[in-house]
């Protein structure tokens, strides 16, 4: 290696030959000339401006043509629908997971669904009635608030009450009926309050709810 560097050192230094300088100035000159001839182009001719404007107009026209004439809300609502269905998909698929923590996340996604989304509503009702984890059921009861406007929701809450096995979930369902001011629940609440096999706390809460709903 050392000998290689030594022999490289012995090579003579390359000196620039005389015509390098000449060629450089030739190039510089040519560049200046080119620049000078290009300068006038900076100003646009009228016809160029007109052509550009025409092209823009054609573009806008084509745009409208492709999308359907003059209905911008269609696109916006389509986008909204897509977002809603994406949220529905996330909520529904998470609620199917094996991990209880993931299902709880799915339930919290349900808050972002459209209040008219029947599939998410059904999934929540299924979770309230059948999810193996009490905490997921509790969260699902709470998420039903988003669907309060639908009579189906109220019906589902009333139906879920007697068959629910976890007292804490029963309490949550009772509280929800009170918040809904659902007077048609009185019958179910009376039965629950009178049933000695039902958890004491649940019976107390049912009694309290009956008084509140009167």
């Amino acid at each position: 290696m050392g000998t290689l560097w030594q022999s490289l050192d012995l090579l003579p230094l390359e000196e620039p030959s005389g015509d390098v300088r000449e060629r450089f100035y030739e190039m510089l000159n040519a560049y200046r000339q080119g620049l000078a001839s290009a300068e006038p182009r900076k100003t646009f001719h009228r016809w160029q401006i007109a052509a550009a404007a025409a092209l823009v107009a054609v573009g806008i026209g084509l745009g409208y043509g492709v999308r359907g004439y003059g209905h911008p809300p269609v696109e916006v609502s389509q986008l909204r629908e897509e977002v809603a269905s994406m949220r529905q998909l996330v909520a529904l698929s998470l609620m199917q997971q094996q991990s209880a923590s993931e299902r709880l996340r799915g339930v919290s996604w349900a808050y972002r669904a459209e209040p008219s989304d029947r599939e998410v509503l059904e999934a929540l009702v299924t979770a309230v009635n059948h999810d193996a984890n009490v905490n997921v059921r509790l969260a699902a009861v709470d998420a039903l608030r988003r669907f309060a406007a639908s009579p189906e929701t109220r019906r589902a809450v009333i139906d879920a009450l007697p068959s629910q096995t976890a007292p804490l979930v029963q309490v949550a369902l009772i509280d929800l009926l009170v918040d809904f001011k659902e007077r048609s629940a009185a019958g179910v609440l009376k039965t629950l309050a009178a049933n000695r096999e039902v958890n004491d706390g649940v019976r107390q809460q049912a009694q309290w709810a009956l008084e509140r709903l009167q």
Binding site: S101, E102, L104, R105, S108, V134, N135, V136, L138, A139, P167, L168, V171, N199, G201
Partner: peptide, 10 residues
Amino acid sequence: DKAMSFSNMN
């Protein structure tokens, strides 16, 4: 990103 929950009746 994991949801958590703690609950009891009494």
